[in-house]
Design a protein around this nucleic acid. Structure first.
Length: 231
DNA sequence: CACCAGGCAAGTA
DNA sequence: TACTTGCATGGT
């Protein structure tokens, strides 16, 4: 990890002016428009998808989601939720195999659904914005749910204003010299949340646009000279 | 063949 | 506290 630890010296390190979060959002949104996240038919599909998408390609996560849907296990109903909860763990694991880490994820999925069923009843679920941070903490206490997964659930599943920080976000800020390798998740989240209106609609599009930017333009250390943020 | 993809937790020193 | 390793699939 030599280049990035010595900012402004490595030849493959492009020190760019810091990002103005509001302006960058406008530019990204103007270029690409609404990204339609999270692609799903039901709320529970989003929640389950957040776990299944951990450290895997979206394509593989989508296969796992499709397997569950074909068994009728991702409807926003009491019956569907209970069927999911009663499915034996090995069988659940087998169904979600394409998403990778399937033994771990089956347990994580089950614990999450158990928690939501116990505390919020049957879907569709609702959480008041005023209670977002307290539910965030409770979800973080579940084994297998880290900050990115929890924020994805709250933002995309519950429309709560929790900004999602992922590897693309980190790379983007790192490249622009705004963070170091060891800047914490929370710190980065606050950078965005402090700079933007506290609205889930904004956070929703912004995160999706960052992912798109990362996929299409900024996969590596060097930033493209035609980066839409700069243009 | 190596490396990556919308992480997280447990183990080690 | 700060690193390292395990978890696992499918695509390039």
């Amino acid at each position: 990890m030599s280049p990035a630890t010595t900012p402004a010296s490595g030849k493959d390190f492009f020190k760019l002016h810091p990002i103005d979060f509001s302006k960058a959002y406008e530019k990204l949104f103007t270029r690409w428009g609404p990204q339609g996240w999270w692609p799903a038919d039901t709320q529970i599909e989003i929640v389950a998808g957040a776990v299944l998408a951990q450290a895997t390609s979206w394509k593989n996560a989508a296969r796992a989601v499709a397997n569950l849907k074909s068994r009728g296990l991702l409807e926003d109903t009491c019956d569907s939720l209970h069927a999911l909860l009663e499915l034996p763990l090995p069988e659940l694991a087998e169904a979600i195999r394409p998403s990778g880490y399937f033994r771990q994820k089956s347990g994580r999925l089950h614990r999450l659904m158990r928690f939501l069923a116990d505390n919020l009843g049957s879907p569709p679920w609702k959480i008041p914005t005023s209670q977002a941070s307290q539910w965030r903490e409770r979800l973080l206490n579940l084994n297998g749910l880290g900050p990115e997964t929890v924020d994805s659930i709250l933002l995309y599943g519950f429309d709560l204003p929790c900004f999602v920080v992922d590897a693309y976000t980190r790379r983007m800020l790192l490249r622009h010299g705004m963070i170091s390798d060891q800047t914490s998740y929370e710190e980065i989240r606050f950078m965005f949340e402090d700079a933007l209106p506290r609205r889930s609609e904004i956070y929703n599009e912004y995160h999706a646009l960052i992912v798109r930017l990362g996929k299409e333009h900024c996969r590596r250390n060097a930033c493209c000279t035609d980066c839409p943020i700069l243009a």
